[in-house]
Amino acid sequence: MEKEYTHIAKQVIDIEAKALNDLKNSIDSNFNEAVTTILKAKGKVVVTGIGKSGHIGRKIAASFASTGTPSFFLHPSEAIHGDLGMISKEDIVLAIANSGETTEIIRLIPFTKENNIPLISISSRPNSTLAQKSNIHISIGRFEEACPFNMAPTTSSLLTLAIGDALMVALMNGRGFNEENFAKLHPGGNIGKRLLDTVSDTMKTENLPFLDTNTPMIDVIYTINSGRCGLGIVGNVNDVKGIITDGDLRRAMNSTQKDFFNLTAKEVMTIKPKFISKVTKLIDAKNVMNSHKITSLLVGNTHQLDGVIQMHDINL
Rank of each mutant, 00 (worst) to 15 (best):
T202M: 15
I309C: 14
K42S: 08
S26K: 09
L84M: 12
M311V: 07
D22L: 10
L171E: 01
G43N: 14
T69S: 14
R228C: 04
A265T: 06
L316R: 12
G235T: 05
K113V: 08
N225M: 13
S121T: 01
L84G: 02
M168A: 15
P216R: 02
S121L: 08
Q11S: 10
T103H: 10
L167E: 02
H292V: 07
G54C: 06
D313Q: 14
M253C: 09
F260T: 01
S26T: 05
A285T: 01
T213F: 14
G230L: 08
N290T: 03
T270F: 03
T160W: 07
N25Q: 15
L94K: 01
T37S: 15
I163S: 01
G85K: 13
I38K: 04
F149I: 15
V237C: 00
G230D: 02
L249I: 12
E206H: 10
V12Y: 11
F31G: 06
D259G: 13
I138K: 00
N238F: 11
S255K: 15
E78W: 04
V169L: 15
A170N: 03
M203L: 12
L297S: 07
T112Q: 01
N315Y: 14
K24D: 00
I283G: 01
M172Y: 13
S157A: 15
T155C: 13
V46T: 04
A65L: 10
L316Q: 12
F72N: 04
I243H: 06
M253A: 12
R142Q: 12
T36K: 15
T245M: 10
A152I: 11
L171Y: 09
M269K: 07
E104F: 10
T129G: 04
P110K: 08
A183Y: 13
T102R: 13
N287D: 10
G54H: 09
K281C: 01
D306I: 15
A146E: 05
N30T: 05
M86R: 04
D313V: 00
K59F: 13
V93E: 05
N116Y: 12
Q132S: 09
I140C: 07
H303Y: 05
P76I: 03
I138R: 00
A62L: 08
I120A: 02
N30G: 10
H292F: 15
N21V: 02
K24W: 01
N21H: 09
S53Q: 10
T36A: 14
V268F: 10
F182D: 00
G85N: 12
T102A: 13
T202R: 14
R251P: 12
M151T: 00
T280G: 14
A62E: 12
L159H: 06
S77V: 15
T129H: 10
V220Y: 11
F64C: 07
S124Q: 09
S296E: 14
N190P: 03
